[in-house]
Design a protein around this nucleic acid. Structure first.
Length: 285
DNA sequence: TGCCAGGCCTTCC
DNA sequence: GGAAGGCATGGC
């Protein structure tokens, strides 16, 4: 096919990567085949063994866009080889989801998506993010179907709190409005993100309404390549309590879980977190 | 019906 | 600084 590129991959699991809950805008159209939006274009991607086949409405620089988004140039084989040495729980989780990649998602979209994620569930988060895109993002036609890019901060400039509420984001409406304003007037400077240390970036993110440590850590892990952070939500709290504290009732404090992860999980704690999250949800849903 | 969801904010000690 | 309660909404 003319408008399709083929890329050799190694230690890559498309399904686990797109279904582990880190992103909200992909739809499975066949087994191991998905359509979604990355930044400025619609992407169709299919995996067959060690190859992925990618097509898009915009073929310009497509391979680099895909390589960057899926973190293809990082050696996950070596990373997994290291983290499975840490303990048996990690070894078991990784064996079930090997090739799960830590995405490099567009920052602004990730920021808004994870503000929406607070005290929410994945299907509703996904619905809200898609609704915002459809209402305010640019329309793209791909293979005869309509898709919508996630809007820029500027495209959300005149959106009111009530407008957000109508799209189903609930009490997070004012947090989104406030964050968009801060991005637009550079009260939060998006261009500065890559220059900040993880500590400094977390501090900056947490100045935004609706962004606490967990949301900040998700944003840093899923769009800023900070693989050392360990976001703790109710699922991770649950699995960590069971596996590492022999406690089934979820009484372990997040602070103590974080202390354990920082001490034992090292520079790829975030990747370990994703494997644990994916595995517990696969088993319990 | 009541509880839960990739938590955070506000209020009150 | 830490604990408790409230919060929109849809699924089960």
């Amino acid at each position: 096919m003319m408008n399709e590129i083929k890329i050799k991959v190694n230690c890559f699991n498309l399904k686990a990567t797109l279904e582990c809950g880190q992103c909200f805008r992909w739809n499975m159209i066949n087994e191991n085949e998905y359509i979604g939006v990355i930044q400025d274009r619609v992407i169709k991607i299919k995996q067959e063994n060690d190859f992925i086949y990618v097509s898009s409405n915009n073929m310009y620089d497509l391979e680099n866009v895909v390589r960057n988004y899926f973190d293809l140039d990082r050696d996950y084989k070596s990373i997994e080889k290291e983290i499975v040495k840490i303990d048996e729980h990690i070894k078991e989780a990784v064996s079930n989801s090997s090739g799960l990649r830590n995405l490099n998602q567009p920052f602004f979209e990730c920021l808004i998506s994870y503000i929406i994620s607070a005290n929410n569930n994945i299907s509703r988060i996904s619905r809200s993010v898609n609704a915002i895109s459809k209402e305010y993002g640019e329309k793209v036609i791909f293979e005869g179907n309509e898709y919508y890019l996630f809007p820029t901060a500027n495209e959300l400039k005149n959106v009111s709190v009530d407008d957000y509420r109508k799209l189903g984001v609930g009490f997070r409406d004012r947090y989104i409005k406030d964050t968009v304003s801060k991005v637009l007037n550079c009260d939060f400077n998006i261009n500065n993100v890559d220059k900040l240390s993880t500590e400094a970036l977390r501090k900056e993110l947490m100045k935004l309404k609706g962004v606490g440590q967990k949301v900040a850590d998700c944003i840093m892990l899923f769009s800023c390549s900070r693989r050392e952070v360990f976001p703790i939500d109710v699922w991770v709290e649950r699995i960590m309590s069971i596996l590492y504290f022999k406690n089934n009732s979820g009484f372990i404090k997040k602070k103590d879980i974080l202390l354990y992860a920082d001490k034992n999980f090292g520079e790829n704690a975030g990747i370990i977190q994703q494997h644990l999250f994916y595995n517990i949800r696969e088993k319990m849903i």
